[in-house]
């Protein structure tokens, strides 16, 4: 998914209040960023999207929250 398509999809999911879709889309964005880890800021970009996914999952009671928190914790970015 291109960055523009992702952006459109995020806007749509947010407008619908579709938390499950938001979690999935942010995970996609994080996966896309992971490939950038070799370049400066790549991990930070992925962590940003993982954080967005975590918050959406937490608010919705989505069971993916635990794994997201664990990934961020492993990155030293979450308690």
């Amino acid at each position: 998914m291109s960055a523009a398509d992702l952006d459109t999809a995020l806007h749509g999911a947010a407008a619908r209040g579709d938390a499950a879709a938001l979690v999935g889309l942010y995970l996609q964005a994080a996966a896309g960023s992971a490939g950038l880890q070799a370049v400066a800021g790549g991990e930070g970009r992925a962590a940003f999207f993982l954080t967005q996914a975590l918050i959406c999952a937490l608010e919705a009671g989505d069971p993916r929250a635990a794994a997201l928190r664990a990934r961020l914790r492993a990155m030293g970015r979450e308690a």
């Binding site: 991990e43 930070g44 940003f48």
Partner: peptide
């Protein structure tokens, strides 16, 4: 949760 409280992606 305190998202990005330590900067982007740092919670």
């Amino acid at each position: 949760a305190t998202p990005h409280v330590g900067g982007p992606g740092m919670n």
